[in-house]
């Protein structure tokens, strides 16, 4: 029985700051993606539309209002998260070292259902995914600014390949984020003991 040692003995694997910014970010991304799909539908650059039922805003003006309100939440929360991660050493401890070979190995092992998931420690595949999605969000924000202000921020728009290319960069950044979310949410709900610590911060008692 480990119950005697009590809850205090359980290790905090997700600090409060990370938990708060994680869920604020989850809400902001949810709003940005669903309102973004509605904005996309107003003039789709690719040959398909998102089902209206899976979008946010009701019509273009509503979707834009959501998008340009939630962008502040996404950017400010993301900035706080990055600052905390860099200053506190969270990124260094959790994301380094990065190893492509290690990530490939871990993915193969995970596909056979044999990956050991130690609470509080990211495997090589996780590290690569988390760094990847952080970069995707940064690219989404930068390409979004390039579309929003192609005159005032024209150097950034030029860096993104011009207005029309920036629209497509913005789309693919969204696609990368959504692809990450499918894997991330899929694993979070299917691997035992992964979801609760993101609320409580504590790893489940060892069994």
């Amino acid at each position: 029985m480990v119950a005697a040692s009590g809850a205090d003995a359980r290790k905090t694997i997700h600090p409060l700051f990370i938990r708060v910014t994680h869920w604020v970010n989850a809400f902001a991304i949810f709003v940005m993606v669903l309102s973004g799909w509605r904005i996309y539908n107003a003039s789709p650059p690719f040959g398909f539309e998102f089902p209206a039922g899976f979008t946010l805003g009701g019509w273009l003006a509503g979707a834009l209002a959501w998008h340009f309100a939630a962008m502040w939440l996404l950017a400010l929360n993301g900035f706080a998260y990055l600052a905390y991660g860099l200053v506190s050493g969270h990124f260094r401890r959790s994301f380094l070292p990065i190893s492509l070979r290690g990530a490939l190995h871990d993915v193969l092992v995970a596909c056979r259902g044999q990956l050991d998931h130690a609470p509080g420690r990211y495997n090589a595949a996780q590290r690569l995914l988390y760094i990847g999605v952080i970069l995707a969000v940064i690219i989404a924000i930068l390409s979004g600014l390039a579309i929003w202000k192609p005159v005032q921020l024209q150097a950034l728009t030029a860096l993104m390949g011009g207005y029309e290319t920036a629209r497509r960069v913005h789309f693919f950044a969204m696609a990368a984020i959504v692809a990450f979310l499918i894997v991330h949410i899929g694993l979070a709900v299917s691997v035992k003991g992964m979801l609760a610590p993101m609320f409580t911060g504590r790893a489940e008692a060892p069994r």
């Binding site: 946010l56 509503g62 209002a65």
Partner: peptide, 22 residues
Amino acid sequence: SLLSGCTLKDDDAVDRLLFAMS
């Protein structure tokens, strides 16, 4: 009422927030 696109009857607060952000 057009802004949020919510079908909720009581979405005044959301609409007002979006309008203030605009």
